[in-house]
Simulated assay, not measured.
Amino acid sequence: MKPVALITGAGRRFGYELANDLLDNGYTVFAHYNSSKGGVEKLEQQGAIGLQADFSDTRAIDNMIDQVIAQTGQLDLLVNNASCFFDNHTVDASDDALAAVYQVHAIAPYKLITGLQALLANANDGLVINITDIYSERPSTNYIAYCGAKAALANMTLAFAKALAPDIRVNAIQPGPILFLPEHDNQHRQQVLAETPLKVEGGLQPMIDTVKFFRDNPFLTGESIKVDGGRALNI
């Protein structure tokens, strides 16, 4: 039977490239998106199963869980990658934005892990990978809510690793300067790279390789790996 993966936030950047890689390696991929429909449509053309859900709505999360359960009896890999990146000004001006930060980064992963636990346990080596952040340990004062929500996800990684063993493994990846956003100007990019010991933008392949590392080492659970070129050393 083909292995099955669910990737949240699969319509762009890391989620999209990971979904492509898994499809190329024979996985059945459930590709979640909120608004990045174009990327998921491309994945669907390669055989992925697209799932739209706005994680700021708890009912949408529950509905997506039901859709996955209706279509598969096992889940080998769950990657909680969906994200919303709001600064203090945004969440201070909008209670909806503040709620979304915690819904997307903490509540949705919690509900997905618990709601899909039976499918993960049905796999030979069910694996959850939570995408946290290097700032979950050393928070930025400009993104207090975001860092707090990512810290909650990091803590849940440890708790679920204990609670779900030995049937399901739960680990985390802490990305750093993997891929700059289009709105990042050259000054910002140079400042970030100056603070990064390896002095380069990492790209997405190191993240994909770390997913495979966790997948292929069955003796790892409750671990978190920084994929950041050493930047966490300097923040």
Rank of each mutant, 00 (worst) to 15 (best):
L112F: 08
T114S: 10
D133S: 10
N130G: 01
V104E: 01
I129D: 02
N122Q: 12
T114H: 07
A121T: 12
N122M: 05
A106Y: 08
A121E: 15
L116Q: 04
N122C: 05
I131S: 00
D96E: 15
D133T: 09
N122T: 12
L119C: 02
A118K: 15
I129C: 03
D133M: 06
S94A: 13
D96K: 15
I131H: 11
I107E: 15
L116F: 08
A100M: 12
G126T: 06
V128A: 06
Y102Q: 14
L98H: 11
Y102C: 11
S94F: 13
D96H: 12
D133V: 10
G115I: 02
A123L: 06
G126K: 06
I113M: 09
I129E: 00
G115E: 01
L119V: 00
D95E: 15
L116C: 02
H105P: 02
A100L: 13
Q117N: 11
P109I: 09
V128W: 09
A108H: 09
V101P: 06
Y110I: 11
T114C: 12
P109N: 02
K111T: 09
Y102M: 12
H105A: 05
A97H: 15
A123S: 13
N130M: 02
D96V: 14
A123P: 07
A123T: 07
V104S: 00
L119P: 07
L112P: 02
V101Y: 01
I113S: 03
I131V: 09
T114K: 14
V128H: 08
V104D: 02
V101W: 00
L127A: 03
I129Q: 03
